[in-house]
């Protein structure tokens, strides 16, 4: 169970708006977070990851308190270690595809399996600038999966993929998430994305 009850003041174009989220996600499966642009979906994911500190509230993941403003608890991103797929991919320009995954894990078998799932086996020596947008996005997803996270946070993870690739990747993701006994929270501005795949649903804003 992932229980989130937080609030955070956000600077908006017109003054300040407050992002309030209270939601419980069941463990396992893919949950979808939707809402209009600029409402704070990315901020929400970053607060769960420990990259941004909420103003108040609690985040509890599988009975471990990750954040509690009342008790002054806040685990670092390194302690939380969520798999995080950034909207801008955040790939390391100095590293090849292989090095990205090796930076995250030492498990070669797992790396090879991920490369296969992401269809990047023939691009292992390429740096991000020599990959297409879709390949970059897949690498970002693979890197997040490389640490075998219990919680996978994905910010618009399929935006650069064509329909066929997206379909295949989503079904692979589903089985991987099941295998890892992980939970994925996926931010999407496209309400139809993940239809029939996602379980829990949260609409922000």
């Amino acid at each position: 169970m992932i229980s989130i009850d937080i609030e955070k003041k956000l600077k908006a174009y017109k003054g300040v708006q407050v992002l309030r989220v209270k939601k419980e996600f069941a463990t396992g499966g893919i949950a979808r977070i939707t809402g209009p642009s600029g409402v704070g979906k990315t901020t929400l994911l970053k607060m769960i990851a420990g990259l941004i500190t909420p103003d108040a509230g609690r985040i509890v993941v599988d009975d471990i308190t990750w954040f509690d403003s009342a008790q002054n608890i806040s685990l670092s991103p390194q302690q939380r270690m969520p798999g995080f797929v950034f909207q801008d991919y955040a790939l390391f320009p100095n590293m090849t595809v292989q090095q990205h995954l090796e930076y995250a894990t030492k498990d070669t078998a797992w790396i090879n399996r991920l490369l296969n799932i992401g269809k990047l086996e023939t691009f292992t020596t390429h740096k991000p600038e020599h990959l297409s947008g879709g390949q970059q996005q897949r690498l970002a997803i693979l890197r997040a999966l490389a640490i075998k996270p219990k919680l996978l946070l994905m910010d618009e993870p399929f935006s650069a993929l064509d329909v066929k690739m997206k379909g295949e990747l989503i079904s692979d993701l589903q089985s991987l998430i099941k295998e890892l006994k992980a939970t994925a929270l996926t931010v999407s501005h496209n309400p139809q994305e993940l239809d029939g795949v996602s379980g829990d649903e949260l609409e922000v804003g």
Partner: peptide, 25 residues
């Protein structure tokens, strides 16, 4: 900022991030 953030979520310390991600770039 997402470069160091990505590194932190992979469990890497600030020093590892500095040496292996920020400095080479």
């Amino acid at each position: 900022a997402s470069l160091s953030q990505a590194s932190y979520t992979l469990g890497k310390s600030e020093w590892q991030t500095f040496r292996q991600v920020l400095l080479p770039n």
